[in-house]
Amino acid sequence: MSESSGSKLSEDAAVSLEAQFRFQFEPAQDSYVLLYPEGLVKLEGSAGEIMKRVDGNKTVSQIIADLEATFPGVDLRQDVIDFLEHAYAKGWIRQ
């Protein structure tokens, strides 16, 4: 696990999934899920849409831009940052 708690995400650096996590869509649960050793978290709605864009290449700003292009007319900026900060604190993602 990264020692991430407390530190903030940079908007200009790429984010990727932590090594031991796996992210996928689960038809049986009709939801995106994050899998890790012996467990899973359901990422419903916007959480799934955000995590789908965490690919190790896109920066936080690029993820926001991409989402705003997909869902035009909605100001998603704060939601995206809040979720990614949460994911970072949980140790799901890294920079």
Binding site: E26, P27, A28, Q29, V33, L35, E38, G39, L40
Partner: peptide
């Protein structure tokens, strides 16, 4: 196929 996600 039933939705199992974790395999030990």
């Amino acid at each position: 196929d039933l939705g199992a996600v974790q395999l030990g």
